[in-house]
Amino acid sequence: MLNRSLKLSKRMYHANASDFLKPTTLGSLVYGKDSMQYKVLSHAMDVSVPIYGFNERAIVHSLNVLKLPSSMLSVISSSNPPSFLHSSPALMELIKFHLVDKRYKTVAGIDPEAADEELPSLESLLLKRLKLNAPIASRLSQVLSQLAIPGPFLLNNALPELHRLSDDLLYFSNEKDHTDFAWYSKRLAISCTYVSSELFMSQDKSADFSQTFEFAQEKLHRVMKLGEYYNNTEEFTWYTMLSAVNLAKSQLARG
């Protein structure tokens, strides 16, 4: 149990990509981009989920279309324990794939070493990630309810993926990163923004989800403003404290 909860806080050192061979697996998935699982699941995400929603039938449909035996279903689900509420392990894998693959697609092709002016803004990356949800927006509530169920999947996959997403959004954008506690608060703020925008999106009926994007922009803006308020308060308090100490010192020196 302790081990499991520690997984949440586990963050790996990111080595220089140019010195090492590419890893064969994609993030927290156990397979890479040229594997059969990837092929089936990405087909499912692109074609079947908009038709059938997030369930086993979507994966079976993709298997049929790709002319693969439907017993592949058990291969796909192999890395997952049976979940709470009897959702199929294959479905959990599909959801995991959705999270990981979309996260990689959001930041694909961005070179984080580039100068700040060339990097996209945090807001544009957040919107890009939300736009990737557009084809499955009507099925989003299914994913969100699966992700919110307390249990091992939440601790091992849902929350870590959410925080990896906010970490990626920050790292690949021109937003300033922090070396102190603000590191945590900023990521938490972005995660909150993202989840609430996704919730909004699942109910959004406006054309091209314009209201969702408006909501996300405003929410992000508000959260950043909050950070600014905090920083200003801290700076002012620090200034007041120092000048008070110096005043006391000078008074003492006068005797």
């Binding site: 050192y13 990163d177 102190d180």
Partner: peptide, 20 residues
């Protein structure tokens, strides 16, 4: 070490304010 932490994407210690 600050720049290493940001570049290598390591999380800083949670107790940073207390250390300060």
């Amino acid at each position: 070490f600050n720049s290493l932490q940001v570049k290598k994407r390591v999380r800083p210690s949670l107790f940073t304010p207390i250390w300060k």
